[in-house]
């Protein structure tokens, strides 16, 4: 019974966790992503479509500086495809032998090109607002994936009486509801290579899947390893407990 009591203690410590994440923002609806849950994985098609949305829409303002083009090999694109994608972007290299910085097409080892050289430039181009880096955005928001999917489709008319400030937009899911980012996803705003109809919901789901992968590229490997470790521990636990019973069999305690 004392074991149970100690487990209960540990469990209640764990239960203290969600309280930390609670904020004033409304709770986004569960978007039922395939990668949610304990054993979920990323849909490769959604990842590739999501990257397309990022590249064609989000990347105009949002950097993803933790990612390199080579990382795209992990979402199911071939090396030739990734080389071609990288070569579409000019990155700064140098200095060359004359001491000058120069532009060249990006290679696999280059980081994603940033839309602005620094935060000040980003603010200057965006009415004073800073479009955050999206590399780990899904880990950096409470209930990140559901929140971002809801946010991207959450542009609605403000309720009567709510004054939306100059240069701001009303969003049902943004904390405080006034967001500098405009509603940028349009129906058929991108043309998917695999023929998936590019509704706003579809684009939001796809790009959220891509961002979730970008934030936790280790997720699939981690869960696979976790299952193996827990199976191993279950067997080891059985063996250790049996050994313990044997060792203590001749002792009254």
């Amino acid at each position: 019974m004392r074991v149970i009591r100690s487990l209960a203690l540990a469990a209640s410590l764990l239960a203290a966790g969600p309280a930390l994440a609670a904020g004033s923002a409304p709770t986004p609806p569960d978007a039922r992503f395939g990668f949610a849950g304990l054993f979920g994985t990323f849909d490769r098609g959604a990842l590739q479509r999501g990257f397309q949305v990022y590249k064609e829409v989000c990347a105009a303002c949002h950097a993803m500086r933790q990612l390199s083009y080579r990382n795209l090999l992990e979402i199911g694109l071939s090396e030739a495809q990734v080389r071609e994608i990288a070569a579409q972007f000019q990155v700064t290299d140098g200095p060359n032998d004359e001491g000058q910085m120069f532009e060249r097409p990006a290679r696999l080892s280059d980081r994603f090109r940033r839309p602005f050289p620094n935060e000040q430039a980003a603010r200057a181009a965006n009415n004073g607002a800073y479009p955050p880096d999206l590399s780990v955005i899904v880990k950096a928001r409470p209930d990140g994936a559901n929140y971002i999917a809801a946010l991207l489709t959450g542009y609605v008319d403000p309720p009567p009486g709510v004054e939306v400030m100059e240069g701001m937009h009303y969003n049902a899911w943004f904390p405080g509801h006034q967001i500098a980012m405009p509603n940028i996803l349009n129906p058929d705003g991108v043309e998917y290579a695999d023929g998936t109809p590019a509704t706003v919901e579809q684009q939001a789901r796809d790009v959220t899947t891509f961002l979730a992968w970008a934030a936790e590229p280790e997720l699939e490997q981690r869960r696979r390893m976790g299952v193996q470790v827990l199976i191993f521990l279950a067997i080891l636990g059985g063996l250790v407990y049996a050994t313990k019973r044997k060792v203590w069999a001749d002792v009254k305690h």
């Binding site: 994440a21 304990l38 981690r222 869960r223 976790g226 470790v229 827990l230 521990l233 636990g237 407990y241």
Partner: peptide, 21 residues
């Protein structure tokens, strides 16, 4: 072993649960 099982569950399945976004 019980301790490692709890530990492994946290690490592999909810590594950011006790952290702050």
């Amino acid at each position: 072993v019980a301790y490692f099982a709890v530990f492994a569950f946290l690490v592999f399945f909810m590594p950011n649960y006790l952290g702050h976004p």
